[in-house]
Simulated scan of single mutants.
Amino acid sequence: MPDDSDDPDGPLFDDSVGRLVRPYTVSDGRTRPTWHFDLMTMVVATGTVLRSNLGLDHAHVLELCRTPVTVAEIAGHTRMPATVIKVLLSDLAERGAVVTRPFNTGKQGPCPGPDPDLLEALRDGLLKRL
Rank of each mutant, 00 (worst) to 15 (best):
58 H>P: 02
129 R>Y: 05
123 R>I: 07
29 G>M: 04
16 S>I: 07
91 D>G: 02
80 M>K: 15
65 C>R: 00
98 V>L: 06
15 D>T: 08
59 A>G: 10
24 Y>N: 11
1 M>W: 11
53 N>M: 09
14 D>Y: 01
13 F>K: 00
92 L>I: 01
109 G>Y: 03
103 F>L: 06
23 P>A: 09
71 V>K: 09
26 V>A: 06
127 L>F: 09
50 L>T: 08
7 D>L: 02
38 D>Q: 11
91 D>W: 13
101 R>K: 10
42 M>T: 15
90 S>W: 00
62 L>C: 02
87 V>S: 04
121 A>S: 11
98 V>H: 00
13 F>P: 01
48 T>V: 15
123 R>G: 03
47 G>R: 01
129 R>A: 15
124 D>I: 09
112 P>C: 11
55 G>D: 07
67 T>E: 05
108 Q>H: 10
92 L>R: 00
30 R>C: 08
31 T>P: 06
85 I>W: 07
43 V>R: 06
12 L>T: 13
100 T>N: 07
93 A>E: 13
54 L>V: 04
78 T>E: 14
88 L>M: 08
6 D>Q: 14
24 Y>R: 12
90 S>I: 04
35 W>R: 15
37 F>L: 05
7 D>Q: 02
39 L>F: 03
27 S>C: 06
11 P>Q: 02
120 E>F: 08
72 A>F: 00
78 T>W: 01
51 R>P: 13
101 R>T: 03
105 T>I: 14
36 H>F: 07
86 K>N: 04
96 G>T: 04
57 D>F: 13
37 F>Q: 09
125 G>S: 12
9 D>W: 13
15 D>M: 05
64 L>H: 03
24 Y>W: 08
